[in-house]
Design a protein around this nucleic acid. Structure first.
Length: 510
RNA sequence: GCGCCGGUAGUCUAGCCUGGUAGGAUGGCGGCCUCCCGAGCCGCUGAUCCCGGGUUCGAAUCCCGGCCGGCGCACCA
């Protein structure tokens, strides 16, 4: 049985601000500390948001860890050994020096300003930068005013380990989860008996003390990452056993070369073509791009609104050989990153080997190898934004959040058609039965239409209604959110029927 | 962080210019009604008018500072 596709039209799309209001009203997200005026860059998950978060994290973990035999998961600590970030380069590159124009107040990164004036910067220290600015008589590019002294500017959150706050006890909240994977690399090799190629995955909070958080959930100071570091022998970057599965997949690609030619729009191209034309450096990198896109699509993100954009040289991070951002087409803001997929080479493992003295190699074909790593790195909150924008529809004049059942915060609504004796008891019975297995809500107040409307807006995929006929023959109706169609099912078959519906959701239209 | 603009119940908003009892809609709770898609009626509830200070007999309204948000710049390793 298949139901017809939903009769949905393109909504006048919500702005990010309107989405923020919507999320607060329905209980997805609240600005953190709002009763005290709010804290910029922090949001709390409300009841629906907390469920949505769990479902997405669980599905990610299932997709990339549980069902695979080549990836193991870890859960690293948030407060991390400070040497980690010296080795990774974050202490250097996260601490910028800012200079302010004494005349017009404009601010610049000291090293950028010097380099733009053609002066090379040998080291990023206060003394050096200060001296270079004075010696070369560098002035404000805008108003030619005199510049003040450089001041340090750190994007990492710091704390102190132990009750005494000393320089020696200074520690950082991790600005990315990735480094915890690298610092645990030896542990996993030793305990899990892994062989190349293999991956280590982790999700968890990361913290960045951003200068100006903005755009609702888009740039947060506390956010959640879902990351995989997939280790490959650098000589075998094209030996990907899964390549045939994904090579025919079409992606919307905007290469660095295209961007240098001022081309703004990506082209639809198969993975195989992209690899053959040298646009994607190696097959393993191509595989992880494809696999990431497949997951994003599976959780309900509109594939037409996803594109893969290569980083151009100037935006490439210090560790990266090649990086692609998976971008989502947001209303107003346009294409914005929701995931980065980077070839980080052996940079991180080598650095940690150098700074810690620990050996970071693994044997492959009897040879000592420091593997290369391909890193798919998702920002959970950004993925959620893309999911929400992909799911918000206007169907028959009403706002409907067409979330895929596997991530919907509430799976089933159970309603007595009218709130009368007989109906109510029967509905509660059905509710008690279903909530054993599905996140279910029961509502009896207001008209049935109003309850359906409320459920639609909250993304509840199906509603079970107890009507007059139920009392005679013990059947109920299942009403589908996106089509409003109803089918009648005996209560004894209800659980199995709902399982089947969720399993084959695409057949039922969404 | 700089510049410009803004902030009134959970949400949307009137009032601000021209100082004088904070009003509506929607939501939430309770009830009546109701056999399938935000129907109607009744009652209740809900606002530190962002916070602090100043001017004034009197401030949501005018002034100053802060917080929060939007846009632009910068930043986004």
């Amino acid at each position: 049985m298949s139901l017809e596709k939903a009769e949905s039209k393109t909504v006048q799309e919500m702005t990010l601000q309107e989405l923020a209001s919507f999320c607060t009203r329905l209980g997805f997200f609240y600005p953190s500390g709002r009763i005290y005026g709010g804290l910029s860059g922090f949001y709390d998950y409300g009841p629906l948001g907390a469920e949505l978060r769990r479902e997405i994290l669980n599905d990610w973990w299932w997709y990339f860890v549980e069902r695979r035999d080549d990836i193991w998961g870890i859960h690293g600590s948030i407060i991390t050994h400070p040497r980690t970030w010296v080795a990774s380069g974050h202490v250097d590159s996260f601490i910028d020096f800012i200079v302010t124009c004494k005349k017009c107040g404009a601010e610049y990164r000291a090293d950028h300003l010097l380099e733009d004036s053609g002066i090379s910067v040998p080291e990023l220290t206060l003394e050096t930068l200060s001296k270079l600015i004075k010696d070369h008589g560098v002035r404000c590019p805008k108003c030619k005013g005199e510049l003040g002294d450089p001041t340090p500017f750190n994007l990492m959150f710091t704390t102190y380990v132990g009750p005494k706050k000393t320089v020696a006890s200074l520690a950082y909240l991790r600005p990315e989860t990735a480094q915890l994977i690298f610092t645990n690399f030896r542990n996993i090799i030793m305990t899990m008996g892994v062989k190349l190629p293999f991956g280590i995955a982790q999700y968890g909070k990361a913290f960045r003390n951003e200068i100006s958080p903005r755009g609702f959930l888009f740039r947060l100071r506390e956010f959640e990452q879902m990351e995989i570091e997939y280790f490959v022998n650098p000589k075998k970057l094209d030996e990907c056993p899964f390549y045939n599965e994904i090579k025919g997949m079409e992606i919307n690609l905007l290469s660095a070369e295209m961007q240098e030619k001022r081309i703004k729009e990506g082209v639809w191209i198969t993975i195989e073509d992209a690899v053959d034309k040298g646009l994607i450096g190696c097959k393993w990198h191509a595989y992880w791009i494809a696999e990431s896109l497949r997951w994003l699509k599976n959780i309900g993100i509109d594939y037409k609104r996803l594109r893969v954009r290569e980083h151009i040289k100037t935006e490439l991070a210090h560790y990266a050989v090649q990086t692609f951002d998976v971008e989502f087409l947001f209303p107003q803001a346009g294409w914005k990153e929701i995931e980065g997929i980077s070839n980080r080479s052996d940079y991180d493992l080598r650095k940690h080997q150098e700074y810690s003295g620990a050996e970071m190699h693994i044997y492959d074909d009897g040879e000592k190898v420091i593997p290369y790593v391909i890193e798919p790195s998702f920002g959970l909150e950004r993925v959620i934004l893309a999911v929400l924008f992909s799911s918000l529809n206007e169907i028959k004049g009403r706002r409907v959040l067409s979330l895929h059942p596997k991530i919907a915060p509430i799976k089933v609504g159970v309603f007595p058609l009218v709130s009368k004796p007989g109906f109510v008891e029967k509905a509660k019975e059905v509710y008690e039965m279903l909530k054993e297995e599905f996140k279910t809500i029961y509502e009896a107040k207001d008209s049935i239409g109003r309850r359906y409307a409320r459920a639609d807006e909250r993304g509840v995929p199906i509603c079970v209604t107890i009507d007059g006929q139920t009392l005679n023959d013990n059947t109920v109706t299942i009403r589908f959110r996106d089509t409003r169609e109803q089918i009648r099912v005996p209560i004894e078959d209800l659980k199995e029927k709902i399982r089947a519906i969720f399993r084959e959701w695409s057949t039922y239209g969404a």
